Simulated assay, not measured.
Amino acid sequence: MSDDDREPDVNISGGADGGGVAAEFAPGEAATRAEAVVDRLGERYWQKTYGGKNGFECLVRTILSQNTSDVASQPAHDDLVARYGPVSELATNLADIGHDELAETISSAGLYNQKSEVIRDAAAWVLDEFGSTAAFDEFVAAGDPGEVRETLLSVSGVGPKTADCVLLFAGGRGGVFPVDTHVHRIARRMGLAPADADHEEVREALEDAVPAEKCGFGHTAMIQFGREYCTARRPACLDDPEACPLADLCDQVGVYPETGELVDPADAAEAD
């Protein structure tokens, strides 16, 4: 794996230092089109097994990433850990600080007032339910995945994508394909999920169609693909139908290179 192909440091998984190890799999004969997409992305980007991140830090990092870019949320995470770390004491320290102080610390992440409340509540919840971040980490890594997911979803401000990221990046669980805005857009645009599918329906479609050991990699690689090629406002195929490395695997739902028109896949399905 060349340096150019390594996972970017500025993303939710934390790059080379974010836990997990580089992994390789032979693409072989894909059983589904979604698996073929993931295999093709493997030739362009990188492959990695996940796990090993501190569970509570991963929870906080994912909350910070909600509705903003990694470029904005990463500095907020770094400032928070520098001010209230070490990581082993993060929950205790965050549960005791005031809202305004935390909001100021994470202001670069956007929606800082809302995220401050969610993070403080999550810290108090971890300590109340598990007694320590170490016990919470063990629950995330060794507990029944369905139970872990449902438990995380019971926390105010923690949605499916956040819960799935904790399962993947901290728990190292196979078969978990978190769905953010990039994955939601691309899966429907390519026809890998129904055009009108919500985030949970996209997740179910991808987890059913992609082998468990490829789901985590598929998530992070698809995000990178969405940033570079299948962007929200101007996918590469609009300018050059042959510019996209996945063109032969894509249904182009809502994308019309002939006219340059671009609509949400759900709207395109309704028009048809």
Rank of each mutant, 00 (worst) to 15 (best):
D164M: 06
F177C: 03
A232G: 08
I223H: 01
D137G: 10
D208L: 11
T181F: 07
G174P: 06
G159C: 14
T231E: 06
V176H: 12
D180T: 04
A205C: 09
F217D: 14
Y229P: 01
V179Y: 09
R173G: 00
G226S: 01
R227V: 00
E150I: 03
I223D: 13
A212T: 11
V155C: 11
R185W: 06
A232W: 04
L152C: 09
E228Q: 02
I186F: 10
G171T: 08
A163K: 09
C230V: 02
D180A: 11
P160C: 07
C230Y: 08
E207D: 05
C237D: 00
L153G: 08
A209S: 15
A232E: 13
A124S: 15
G175M: 10
C230L: 04
G175F: 10
S154I: 08
A163D: 13
F169L: 01
I223C: 09
G131H: 12
T220W: 03
F169W: 01
T231R: 14
A236C: 09
V126K: 09
G143R: 08
L192H: 05
V166K: 11
K161Y: 06
A197S: 09
R149T: 08
P160H: 14
F225E: 05
A135M: 12
R189K: 03
V210S: 11
G157K: 13
H199N: 08
C215L: 07
R149K: 13
M222W: 01
E129S: 15
G146C: 04
F139D: 01
E200L: 14
M190I: 04
V166W: 04
S156A: 14
A141T: 13
C230Q: 01
V158K: 10
A142G: 02
D144L: 06
P235S: 07
P211T: 11
A134K: 14
D198M: 05
H199P: 00
S154L: 05
H199V: 14
D164S: 09
A124M: 12
A195R: 02
D198S: 10
R173Y: 00
R173I: 03
A236I: 00
T220H: 10
H199I: 11
L192D: 01
P178D: 02
H219M: 08
G157S: 11
L238P: 03
S154N: 07
C165G: 02
G131F: 08
L238D: 03
E228K: 00
E138I: 04
A205G: 04
L127K: 05
G218Q: 10
P211N: 13
V176Q: 10
A232P: 05
R189E: 02
L168C: 06
